[in-house]
């Protein structure tokens, strides 16, 4: 009788996909009242963390748990790995208390990110709401690293108040460039804000981009994305040129746990970025 080969899990070269690798927090940046960025370096080796824009990592806080957080750093340059997140749940609140020198577990990168390749030689319209700018920042870095190969690039960014804007200094720096068109708006003007007031969707109608040769990338609260898609469609942008990032409960990040089921896909593996054409049948249905 032929016995099947008996191997333990730790067979050479076989890494458990649920294992996490300790990373050192090298810097914490307070972005807004409740949002912060962490720069991270692997403890094991100095190797660059390679990922594509729109992908996420599972971040593990020792003794507390794991959460999926998108990567907000530059995929092309020498910038360290950065995660930007809001302290809203048990794990992210525990993360908020960590300081430079502390460790986090990281596994990833996971998921299908933004269609930067598809956007080559097209106008690019980036619409971000609130913390939705974080997963889109790597797209901007990627485009800037290869700027000549894209058409007009428009970033439309809306937040509740001016104080809720992420990456303010960077946005100002980018605004002074002639090859990026940036419009920011707030729902409520506070302090010395002299910019636009109104929801981010109102910026779409008057933005200069070629609706037939553009790729739109949208990230923000689901409801903001719904209205943004409507405006883009009004401008004549095709559904297969509109991309949105869907947030679902990702527990494993690798398509094994079922929590992020979205229609006939797993948001962790088949998303989080979907073309609107792929997802429109479900997008306006409740509780999907």
């Amino acid at each position: 009788m032929v016995a099947r080969k008996a191997e333990t899990l730790a067979v050479k070269g076989q890494v458990d996909p649920m294992s996490t690798a300790p990373f050192r927090i090298t810097r914490v940046i307070k972005e807004t009242q409740d949002t912060f960025s962490m720069e991270l370096a692997p403890e094991a080796s100095g190797e660059r963390f390679s990922f594509s824009p729109g992908q996420f990592n599972m971040l593990y806080v020792f003794g507390v748990g794991e959460v999926p957080i998108s990567i907000s750093s530059d995929p092309t340059g020498q910038m360290p790995l950065v995660h930007t997140t809001r302290a809203v749940g048990a794990v992210t609140q525990a993360m908020w208390k960590l300081k430079a020198g502390d460790a986090l577990g990281i596994r990833g990168p996971y998921g299908r990110g933004w269609p930067v390749e598809q956007a080559l030689h097209n106008d690019v319209v980036i619409v971000a709401g609130g913390i939705g700018l974080a997963p889109l920042r790597p797209v901007i870095y990627s485009i800037l690293a290869d700027r000549d190969r894209f058409g007009r690039v428009v970033l439309l960014y809306g937040t509740r108040t001016p104080e809720d804007m992420l990456f303010r200094k960077e946005l100002e720096k980018w605004r002074s460039r002639f090859d990026l068109e940036i419009h920011m708006t707030v729902d409520r003007a506070t302090g010395s804000w002299r910019g636009n007031v109104g929801v981010v969707t109102t910026l779409i109608g008057r933005s200069p981009f070629d609706h037939q040769n553009c790729v739109a990338m949208v990230c923000g609260p689901e409801i903001m994305m719904r209205f943004t898609v409507l405006e883009l469609q009004k401008r004549g942008v095709n559904d297969d040129r509109i991309f949105i990032s869907m947030e679902r409960n990702m527990k494993c990040g690798i398509g094994l746990c079922g929590h992020c089921q979205l229609g006939s896909s797993f948001a962790c593996k088949d998303g989080p970025v979907y073309s609107f054409a792929e997802i429109k049948a479900l997008f306006t249905k409740r509780e999907m």
Binding site: L9, D16, M18, P22
Partner: peptide, 23 residues
């Protein structure tokens, strides 16, 4: 069990649970 994490100063070690095969 997936793994055990043991605190070591400010960091931690990860020990992946090495399952023995059962025929």
């Amino acid at each position: 069990k997936l793994l055990t994490a043991e605190q070591t100063g400010k960091s931690f070690n990860v020990i992946v649970y090495d399952e023995k095969p059962i025929k």
